[in-house]
């Protein structure tokens, strides 16, 4: 399990570097402001496939709850949607969520991020 955590951290760093490189290429040479950064999402709605018994929900919730920055997790059996509430300073990636679902022996589906100003789907 330690390997999985290390893997996701490495990916997060790589993604940050690529965003930085893209920003440097397209942004004018003006001082960067806080407003130029994307607003951190506070909630993620994730489709989880393969949960076919109510008694395996506990394991899924525990895996998702172990992601650093996740404050609360709920899961709706009939729709297969997990609702992750994040701490304001959380930096959770799609890969973090997908890996946690794989580790719980299930299959991740689409991830929809909800930010205070709107939402988007990956």
């Amino acid at each position: 399990m330690g390997d999985a955590v290390v893997g996701s951290v490495t990916l997060r760093i790589a993604r940050s570097l690529s965003i930085c490189a893209l920003s440097c290429a397209i942004l004018p040479p003006t001082p960067r402001t806080v407003a130029a950064q994307p607003t951190p999402a506070k909630e993620a709605l994730v489709i989880v496939k393969g949960v076919a018994t109510p008694f395996s929900v506990f394991g899924l919730l525990k895996r998702l709850g172990q992601i650093p920055g996740v404050q609360k997790v709920t899961f709706d059996l009939s729709s297969g949607v997990a609702d992750l509430r994040l701490r304001p300073d959380a930096r959770v990636t799609d890969e973090d969520i997908r890996q946690a679902i794989f580790n719980a022996s299930y299959t991740p589906g689409s991830i929809r991020w909800k930010a205070p100003g709107g939402d988007h789907e990956d």
Binding site: I47, K49, G50, A52, S78, G80, T107, G109
Partner: peptide, 9 residues
């Protein structure tokens, strides 16, 4: 082989 759907496996 594992084929997962919403509420099924």
């Amino acid at each position: 082989y594992q084929l997962d759907g919403i509420g099924s496996t």
